[in-house]
Design a binder for these strands. Structure first.
Lengths: 250, 250
DNA sequence: CGCCAGGTTGATTTCGCTCAAGCAATGTGG
DNA sequence: CCACATTGCTTGAGCGAAATCAACCTGGCG
């Protein structure tokens, strides 16, 4: 599962070489697990397995059995579903503070997608038995996961709707807007700067398009002055132009 | 919400003119609610609102606020998401024994899709407050809903994957196979007979296609001897032919 | 330096949408 | 019971968006 020791961490990311403690996790505020009081949190803390992964590594593989969930302390992760023909689609991005793998755990199936790190990541594994135990002991935790999955389900259905009715150019505009939240900043001149953790290939897989088609959509948006695209950088000078792309397209 | 008194029930469907009792509900075995013991079930029973709806009626509307969930005692229901351009997509079918509306309830949003009856339906409404109360009292019920939503989320993502990579003809083959479960029988000669509760329009909306495109796909399958299509009837003589359509297309 | 993966661009084809017409089934009022 | 409207389904012609196939860049990296 972990493909050897992690190698490519920058100095600042190397801060946490030792086993971290859940209670001091920088993402504790956002995670589902904040529902737990200090004593239940200690159960996680003592049973978790901490790992650091370089970019492009698998956290788990599609079709393999589920032994627990993973909690992201740092980095970005993509959930990718593939078929026998080499088609692959990224169903969602997972960011620091989020938990992954719970869908398969709750459904009692194998993983239906693989999770792969896009950036260097710090991840904790929490064994299935501990999760089950905590769920029975804390109705609040169940409630959080119900809420979380309800959100995911909404996202998934919305995404399906969009791939059916919107063209690639518009879906790309939606993606840029969505990435603004986690990966966007504003520079001195008021431009929106987004630094996606994704390659072109992966961006394409995320909106359900071929890389060539995405390339053309990017060019089209650029020619129309909606955004400027660098290797892993998107600049939006006027948000209104981007919103016009989306128009009334939900 | 309920558009007047129900009118078009056949004699057998009319069996339950009076308020039914949860404990004797024919679908009690399948529902999430079977997690509840008799005493908690009584809470639902005393607070529920029973309704009969003719076909084509709305159980709830997209964008309207959520006051509880609905439990289907009889009939088939479609969850439809629409946008301002008149595009609409059916995200899933709900059958007797299933609960609907919980996604919006758990997410704390308005309904993101409307629910409309495809056949005459018997539905019970369960108020939000009762659901919340039961969830905190019964970890088992939470667990069932976690399981249920995990399944739905898997379905939604699979469906998204298929609309991206499979052509309409193949998606239709998948739909036929899926409808076999609830709506299929086998006749004396061993043919599979499926009686979908859907119009052509709705079948199209379910696989994410225009009615015209579906019509052509149907003709293609028929010309190739995969299935015979009547108004609301599908005959499959040799299941292998249908499976060949799907081939290794997940 | 040459190699290689990732990205772009161009030419072509395919699939499904749009628009428009025709047709079949059902319902309605005279 | 029939003329007629209505609605849903099918078919055809044309078009547009995106996939496919192929060539060519580009930037790291050994």
């Amino acid at each position: 599962m972990s493909d050897g020791p992690p190698t490519d961490f920058s100095p600042e990311q190397r801060l946490c070489d030792e086993e971290p403690v859940c209670a001091t996790c920088p993402t504790y505020q956002q995670a589902e697990w904040q529902a737990l009081g200090p004593e239940l949190l200690r159960k996680i803390n003592s049973s978790k397995v901490y790992m650091q992964l370089g970019p492009g590594k698998a956290v788990f593989h599609q079709n393999s059995p589920v032994n627990g969930v993973h909690c992201v302390r740092q980095g970005s992760i993509a959930m990718r579903r593939s078929d026998a023909h080499g088609n692959s689609r990224i169903s969602r991005l997972i960011e620091a503070g989020q938990t992954l793998g719970y869908r398969a755990l709750f459904a009692g199936t194998v993983y239906e997608a693989s999770a792969e790190t896009l950036t260097p990541c710090q991840v904790c594994f929490i064994p299935k038995a501990v999760v089950s135990e905590l769920l029975t002991e804390s109705p609040e935790l169940s409630s959080r996961f119900l809420q979380r999955m309800a959100g995911d389900l909404g996202d998934a259905e919305l995404s399906g709707f969009r791939t059916t009715f919107l063209r690639i150019r518009t879906r790309l505009a939606h993606l840029i807007l969505a990435m603004r939240g986690r990966h966007g900043t504003v520079d001195d001149e008021g431009n929106i700067i987004i630094e996606p953790p994704l390659s072109r290939q992966d961006m394409a897989a995320l909106i359900g398009a071929r890389a060539e088609s995405l390339s053309r959509a990017i060019r089209a948006l650029q020619d129309d002055g909606v955004a400027k695209f660098g290797r892993r950088r998107i600049e939006v000078h006027d948000l209104d132009n981007l919103l016009d792309e989306i128009d009334d397209h939900i």
